[in-house]
Amino acid sequence: MRTTFGLLFLLLTSNTLFAQGPKVLIVTAHPDDETMFPATVFKITRELKGTVDLALITDASGGYNGLVASTYYDKNLTDSATGRVALPLLRKKELICAGEVMGIRNFFFFDQLDDFYQIDPKPFFEGKRWDMAFCEKKLNKILEEGQYDYVFCLVPSAEQHAHHKTASILAIRAVKNLKSEKKPIVLGGRALNKNYTYSFDVLDGFPETKISKKAPVFYFDRSYGFGENNKHSYMIVADWVKACHKSQSGDMNSSMHRGDLETFWYFDINVESGIEATSKLFEKIRQSGFVTK
């Protein structure tokens, strides 16, 4: 009898282990940065039964484009003085709302100053903007304890906000320096239209951002139609997530129902053997739930 029970327990626990999906950590600078790849995250958590956590680097006190949101929240969110006080709490609540849609498990808040729009990430790594020693230590601990399979960040393009680039470089360096035999694969995400001409190779001055020439650009087509009259698509998930970010009513209004593809770029710091594993992951994503191409 004991042998039968033990065998049954082993079978049940083995099935649970094999059924477990990938573990992912998202590292972004601002609430709403995750709108670059929400449908991919949704499919990982809801359909592949994986787990996703999110590390937010800034305190979310910037972003004064909430003209309509000012009426919604009864606060002048286009005014920086008001925003500095009100936005950190509002935007974190909005991120948690978006996280409920995507199935985010844990949030890690680093609370570095969301100071002003700028392009150059170098001052951040020189310690002139953020407490980088604190950020590095905290992110290292999260990675060590989380045992993630993947880390998602934004593609650190030259034209991007310095906060975006700094957060992504921070994530890449943290994985690169991780003292572990098994390191997560770092992917840079970006939402693009199907006919995109965008390309990325490396951010000047930061060789760790170099993209592998052996890997394809992985993608999920969130606009692909299915169901009755093809009127359904995973684009609705992206819209649900964007709708949570009410304080950013200007940016979200212009981005609603846009960006057909959630694209992911494979950094050269990753092991070459991870390319095949990542290809299989995105094939599973496309074949899970409501099948897409």
Rank of each mutant, 00 (worst) to 15 (best):
A215C: 11
P216H: 09
V217H: 07
V217L: 09
Y219L: 10
Y219A: 11
F220E: 11
F220I: 10
D221K: 08
D221L: 08
Y224L: 00
Y224S: 02
Y224F: 05
G225Q: 11
F226L: 02
G227A: 07
G227W: 02
G227Y: 07
E228C: 08
E228S: 11
N229I: 00
K231V: 01
H232N: 06
Y234Q: 04
V237Y: 02
W240Q: 15
A243Q: 11
C244Q: 09
H245V: 07
H245G: 09
G250W: 06
D251K: 07
M252A: 06
N253I: 01
S254R: 05
S254E: 04
S255V: 03
M256H: 01
M256C: 00
M256S: 03
G259D: 08
D260T: 01
F264W: 13
W265D: 05
W265A: 04
Y266Q: 07
Y266P: 05
G274E: 15
G274Y: 14
G274N: 14
E276R: 11
T278G: 10
S279N: 12
K280S: 14
K280N: 15
E283T: 15
E283Y: 12
K284P: 05
K284R: 13
I285Q: 15
Q287W: 08
S288M: 08
G289Y: 04
G289V: 03
F290V: 00
